[in-house]
Design a protein around this nucleic acid. Structure first.
Lengths: 109, 109
DNA sequence: TCAGGTACTGACCGAAAGGTAAGTAATGCT
DNA sequence: AGCATTACTTACCTTTCGGTCAGTACCTGA
């Protein structure tokens, strides 16, 4: 596999995937349980959520903590790396929010 | 189709696609011809390049200017919106560049 | 007359991403 | 015994994405 061609290339690889930005955004305010995330992120299925969470975990963006209880409890939170990513993502979110009207209008549909 | 859930969601929709970040980055320094872009962006095919350029054009991120000559000449450049997007992308690029070693290491392929 | 350069276009194909739906394990509650 | 809760897991299918390859139009210069 070719090395990343630039920082943007690397970042895109990390946040690529339909639900990753939403997950990052949801975890912005602190740790959340699996079920909380599922309810917070409208439209995501359990399979997809877990898949994307695992990918983020393997990249050291989110941390997974299991509480050995019944019924089970698992909390997901941002690592330091994940928090720094979220900071870097903020301007992009602001850009999208600022131009959301024109972006909605030019959408493929 | 559901509306964008946040600015990040909208931005991701615009820059989603394998070659779009590379194209944006390449156009950062000024207008480029189709052939120049193709040579600049290693690995891209003509079909893919044009497809992604058209998508960016329809979103008003890049501008396409045809010079009626033979052989043909077409120049692509960033619109104002495109330039503002590139500005918003800069921190993300910096983030990727800063953590590129660890990101390469945790990569799937 | 014919190769060469430039910017596309279109048919076809395989891989990857995403979605649906059903099942699993452990325990407490009634 | 049977149901609820929570966090997954698995098999299977559809859709989207990206890639290969061949072809087009136009004029120039040999």
């Amino acid at each position: 596999m070719l090395p990343y061609s630039c920082g943007l290339d690397a970042a895109a690889d990390v946040i690529g995937g339909k639900w990753k930005p939403r997950i990052l955004w949801a975890l912005h305010h602190g740790p959340m349980r699996f079920g909380e995330l599922r309810r917070e992120i409208a439209g995501v299925t359990e399979k997809m959520l877990i898949q994307q969470l695992r990918e983020l975990e393997s990249r050291d963006i989110v941390h997974r903590e299991v509480f050995h209880q019944v019924p089970p409890k698992v909390e997901y939170s941002l690592t330091e790396l994940g928090q720094s990513l979220n900071v870097a993502l903020a301007p992009l979110d602001a850009w999208g929010a600022e131009h959301i009207a024109v972006l909605e209008a030019s959408r493929a549909g």
